[in-house]
Amino acid sequence: MDAVNWLLLNAGDAVLATWSAVKVGAAWAWSIVDTLLDPLLSVVLACLNPLCTKLGDLVYAILSPFPIWIGLTLLSVAAGLIALLAFRYTSNQTAIGRAKDDIKANLLALKLFKDELGVTFRCQLRLLWAIARLQRYMLFPFFVMLPPMLLLLAQMGIRHQWRPLQPGEQTNIELRLTDEAPTTDTTPTEPITLQPNPGLAEIVGVPGADRTVWRITAGSPGRHILQFHLGAESIEKELVVGTEFQRVSAIRTRHNWGAQLLHPAEPCLPADATVASIQILYPHVDSWIHGANWWLLSFFVISMATALIFKPLFNVRF
């Protein structure tokens, strides 16, 4: 009885503690997976990213005569169709059909036999089981579609999430050092410099212990390569200035497959570099349709609608 009282009294803490433990466990598990995947995926992405970026440039060049939202719509429709067909041919349509039928049957049974509580509970259990089966049948097409879809979204992200700096516009550039970089309490032991560049009209540096921030004013339009010097080490970062719709690379980081996947436009920093990342705080694209964050919602809605419209035509069940 004491144990029960103790449990009741500490139930909230117990839940929180359990949740924390789950989170720690998940993080630990993921770090292991990350460590295992990184050597392979880094190499693969190092090869794929330049190709994908070139392909992305080509596709967006083709779409450039259209307004941006039309380009996004066309791309979403194409992605929806390709995903639909991929799903059609990589999934077990019969099994998915059965699972969906089971879901519908049990939902109808809940309506038809509502006076029987026992039946209601049994139907709910069967319903959950059918949902679990449906999710299981989604696994294979999920894994098949995952890589191309992520590569596509990364390419779209570097175009729709941020816009280039406009001439005269101010922003920050932040350079972070690795934990291994030699520093004093307040500054790095080696001075960090940002070389003047036509793309930079004005530079004001603010050094810190593990990162340096430059306040810059955008200069002439174009793609500029910024040069950073840290002692003998030299690092480059692309800066885009202009008023047109074009891709930008907001951050360049050290070798890691996750960062490579999300920021495909520039190669990773060398593995032995003392710089952890260089980030340019580009402004968000401002649009409710194709602007920052909204582009993803638009993509989701349009591609889903496309899939739903063409689902009967291609006889796909999902």
Partner: peptide
């Protein structure tokens, strides 16, 4: 799920709807 394709997104939507309906109808029945 939306990111990995409309099919999976829709399926998850269906599943969530089904789960919701199951519990809702069960609750209503009780």
């Amino acid at each position: 799920h939306a990111y990995i394709g409309p099919g999976a997104g829709f399926a998850v939507g269906t599943s969530l709807l089904a789960v919701f309906l199951a519990f809702f109808s069960g609750l209503v029945a009780i």
